[in-house]
Write a protein that binds this DNA or RNA. Structure first.
Length: 388
DNA sequence: AGTATCACTA
């Protein structure tokens, strides 16, 4: 009894160190605990798995599973749900699937959290149509196991619909969520508005935003950012600033989303320099999305050299970074530069957007370099096999 | 004491 309550205390310590990203301290506490006869349990390890997958790597998280085995502690459903979410965070879809299989083999029955997590993995990592089909299949599967889809399941399926451009169906799900009382917070509304704004359906988006504002759901940070983005994209920068003021009066501080949205708004108005200055002054110039935006906007403002300067300075790059540069290089006919960049993207293990790849091929073909296309394709193939 | 959904880039 004494040791059980000590373990509970240990877990509280571990959880707070993990929350503060002090993983080393958490490990020290475990060692000290063991010395005093306080043994970690499955909760301790689950906490570690989450922290390692969030702040370190999937491998670090997965290695906790080995430590559990050594300590003869059986992983539970939360262990596997956490590992699957961790694999998704690091874009490792096949690991997600393997873990799901492993869980079944161990006789651990997936719960609604497992399905929601797996569905989200597919949403994030697969092509929109595949993600949508998988989500539909999972709905059937979980129903067959007697599980009931919850608000998170609905939100995820709805996102799959929007992403695969099934707008009507997505909106139907939203109305169903209203009926079920699943719109007690801003999640569903922001999902709908975000998807509509992204596809330039500003009018429709405004309608749903209005519906949200007319409920008594308090606006949270994400809702404010959604609203500000709606105004920016609709070309109403003053309105956006009005909301910003209101938000700040209510005690919310603008975050990196807000800043990127505002910066985009400036670009949209044609003030790329102002956007650049805002980024530097507001101090979010290490934000990947903001930098990607600037790379793209500089290119479009005929400042490709400046875009390259930003590109070179970036500590992290993703498919957006490469794809927008490649697209813009193709547009101005710099096909050699574009294909070089395409290769370095593939070699860095970054997934290239198909549209960027095809832009390079088309660009080469149109400038009469048919042979180069063939060569580039085989080099990509080679690079891909080397990465995997 | 430990797990899953919203907002910014193309």
């Amino acid at each position: 009894m004494v040791s059980r309550s000590s373990t509970r205390f240990l877990n509280i310590c571990i959880a707070s160190f993990c929350k503060a990203k002090h993983l080393q301290r958490a490990e020290t506490v475990i060692i000290d605990g063991v010395r005093l006869g306080v043994l970690p349990d499955v909760v301790t390890y689950n906490t570690l798995i989450n922290a390692y997958s969030r702040f370190v790597s999937f491998d670090a998280a997965y290695s906790v599973l080995d430590r559990m085995k050594e300590a003869s502690i059986k992983p539970d459903i939360i262990t596997y749900n956490s590992l699957i979410a961790g694999a998704m965070r690091h874009c490792l879809l096949s690991n997600c699937m393997d873990l799901f299989e492993e869980m079944l083999e161990l006789g651990i029955k997936p719960d609604i959290w497992s399905y929601n997590t797996l569905m989200h993995c597919f949403f994030k990592l697969e092509r929109p149509d595949d993600a949508y089909r998988t989500a539909r299949w999972m709905l059937k599967e979980l129903g067959a196991s007697g599980l009931v889809p919850n608000v998170i399941t609905y939100t995820t399926v709805m996102r799959c619909c929007f992403r695969s451009r099934r707008f009507e169906q997505g909106l139907e799900i939203f109305e169903e969520m209203i009926d079920k009382g699943y719109t007690f917070d801003g999640f569903a509304y922001c999902t709908v508005v975000g998807a509509l704004v992204k596809t330039c359906r500003i009018e429709e988006a405004s309608h749903y935003m209005e519906r949200m504002v007319n409920t008594d759901i308090g606006l949270d940070m994400a809702s404010y950012n959604t609203l500000i983005n709606l105004y920016c994209k609709g070309g109403k920068l003053e309105m956006a600033h009005g909301v910003l003021d209101k938000m700040e009066k209510e005690g919310f501080e603008r975050d990196e989303y807000t800043n990127t949205i505002l910066m985009n708004g400036l670009c949209e108005e044609g003030d790329v320099e102002g956007a650049m200055e805002y980024m530097n002054v507001a101090g979010f110039n290490s934000n990947l999305v903001a930098l990607n935006t600037m790379v793209d906007r500089c290119c479009k403002a005929d400042q490709i050299d400046y875009a390259f300067k930003i590109f070179d300075s970036m500590h992290m790059r993703d498919s957006f970074t490469y794809s927008s540069l490649i697209h813009n290089l193709c547009k101005v006919g710099r096909f050699r530069c574009a294909s070089k960049l395409l290769l370095s993207c593939v070699r860095s293990g970054t997934r290239i957007l198909p549209s960027a790849k095809h832009a390079v091929f088309d660009c080469l073909r149109h400038s009469g370099h048919q042979r180069e296309v063939k060569r580039l394709k085989s080099e990509i193939k080679l690079a891909l096999s080397a990465v995997v």
